[in-house]
């Protein structure tokens, strides 16, 4: 089974029915899989804070949400994470493409990579890092944990995990 299919299967198995995405090259395959999945409403958003607003609404409407985005989005969404998702205690799994790690060809991506974990740590966001393919075996538990504790939770997925792109 491809890792993209496994990720989407885990989302579906955890009743995630509403997924918003802002694309990244590394995430192209999983976004295609989300789009093809009949059990998930896929709503691309134009900016990640907008996407978190959509997810907040979907959650209050009774649907489990998730967001798929790049780590650069941490810089865009701090206010939303703090004053919406965390302040109102809402769950939000964030599958994040961790650009700027080993294998990265674009130097500028490293500039945000060096801040990514520090920012997530500062925000008290539980953070998991998928580096090898088998790390994805924890996704099911991470999703259960997210909806148990009603917090945003970050899953960083680096270039080694995606085996280049």
């Amino acid at each position: 089974m491809s890792v993209n299919k496994k990720i989407v299967d885990d989302l579906v198995a955890n009743d995630v029915e509403f997924v918003t995405t802002v694309p990244c090259k590394q995430l192209a395959g999983v976004i295609d899989e989300i789009d093809a999945c009949e059990k998930i409403y896929h709503i691309p958003s134009n900016k990640e804070d907008e996407g978190m607003g959509l997810c907040a609404g979907a959650f209050m409407g009774g649907k489990r949400p998730a967001i798929i985005m790049q780590n650069t989005a941490i810089g865009v969404t701090i206010n939303t994470l703090v004053t919406l998702t965390q302040y109102y205690r809402m769950p939000l799994p964030m599958l994040i493409s961790y650009r700027g790690e080993l294998g990265e060809p674009v130097a500028c991506q490293v500039e945000m990579a060096v801040h990514t974990k520090a920012l997530l740590n500062q925000l008290n966001i539980p953070t998991y890092h998928f580096h090898k393919e088998e790390d994805a075996d924890e996704l099911d538990s991470i999703l259960k944990y997210t909806f148990m504790c009603n917090k945003p939770v970050a899953i960083l997925t680096d270039a080694s995990f995606w085996k280049g792109y």
Binding site: F18, G53, C55, A56, G57, G61, T80, V82, L84
Partner: peptide
Amino acid sequence: MLGTMGLASSIGLGLALAQ
């Protein structure tokens, strides 16, 4: 909304799509 300027429309749309 007590914070997060700009997201009333996004929250509303997500809510409307979900139920």
